[in-house]
Design a binder for these strands. Structure first.
Lengths: 206, 206
DNA sequence: TCATGTGAAGACATTCACAGCA
DNA sequence: TGCTGTGAATGTCTTCACATGA
């Protein structure tokens, strides 16, 4: 269990979701080539990924779904629950809140933030919305570790600055620009315009 | 201009947006180290990326913003406009429509699709919404080349199947599963649950 | 026989470091 | 002097291919 690459982490979280689906369907074991097909990967890659998280010990004819799920969860969730804040409650913020809330047991959306007076102090999908001026205070009070930024481009950097000064170490950024942050803060960019342009490029040049 | 890597394509689209911003601000030239800082990259990487798209010929003291923008656009948009469909007009679909529409001149959202009777035949953000049963027909009529899937997990594969049979070659998939499609179709997954779990992992292990 | 686990090879991407130019 | 353009080195990820075990 030495260095696990970023791509591996992505695939492992995907395996987990696939395995959860299979488990619900009553499946008890699975081969690497099946997991490869379902995840759009290759058998050798699946085996390496599972090896890299320190999984081992089950019989040779496939992996046991239950044991594998436990290994993955232990590896990914190590250290318990993550408290999440969503900053910017427009269509995108709501959509993300809906996706996450209730689905991932180790992840709790602890607070929403916006500056629109119509939203502030309301409860949306069961989560309280605060004014964005209270960001630093609420982040500390509720021990929030991760923030999702869905505010417009022009406001994103200011939000990131406040989050960083409040001690946040992980940001998922949907604003279409690169945030400037200290190196100990992990930023994942999900720039939607970039995504569309990339697909446009490849669908044209293939 | 041989093989340009996927990562390079992503960065190049980002450079374009940064350069457009600078151009609007009246900036005429830029150094690789500045573009590197603004894009979260490194000077050598920027220079390689620009080299790889066949840019060359401007003076040594930095890149000319205008010329560079033209080179990038020629490389990325080669072949003209892209017609886009968005399938699934919930919060996420609307949000994406809003991000793209009007901002990227070479990209036109030609149709929306949903199965909710309240949405069908309505015009949203200036774009007509069709019933999802008309997908294949409208895709062909309007010469749509790229589709964005924002329907729930359980419906995504069926939508993808229809899109593929209608001749679509590029799909941007926001449903949290891996679509099964022929190899000549380019799929870009933007699984939101994966994104959050990845950030959670790295913010914890750093 | 058929699948796993893994050393080793290969492919790919990043970064260094310096020649060449204005 | 201070930048770009780029060969070469390095680092990272993927894939092969086979020994091993039930």
């Amino acid at each position: 269990m030495e260095h696990v690459s970023e791509k591996s982490i992505e695939r492992i979280t995907l395996y987990r979701r696939i395995l959860l689906r299979l488990q619900k369907a009553g499946r008890e074991s699975i081969y690497s080539h099946e997991l490869a097909r379902l995840s759009g990967s290759l058998p050798a890659k699946v085996r390496r990924d599972l090896m890299s998280i320190g999984y081992s010990g089950t019989p040779v004819h496939g992996y046991k779904v239950g044991v594998l799920l436990e290994s993955i969860s232990e590896f990914i969730d190590r250290g318990g629950k993550t408290n999440v804040a969503i900053v910017g409650i427009g269509n995108l913020g709501r959509s993300i809140a809906g996706y996450i809330q209730g689905r991932r047991s180790k992840m709790d959306i602890s607070a929403l933030f916006d500056k629109d007076p119509i939203l502030v102090d309301r409860v949306i999908i069961g989560i309280r919305c605060y004014h964005i001026d209270e960001l630093a205070k609420v982040v500390k009070e509720k021990d929030i570790q991760l923030a999702i930024i869905t505010v417009p481009e022009g406001e994103a950097q200011a939000v990131a600055d406040v989050l960083v000064s409040a001690g946040i170490k992980g940001i998922l950024n949907y604003a279409p620009l690169k945030l400037q942050t200290p190196p100990d803060v992990y930023i994942e960019d999900r720039d939607m315009i970039m995504a569309v342009e990339k697909v446009a490029y490849y669908s044209r040049n293939k």
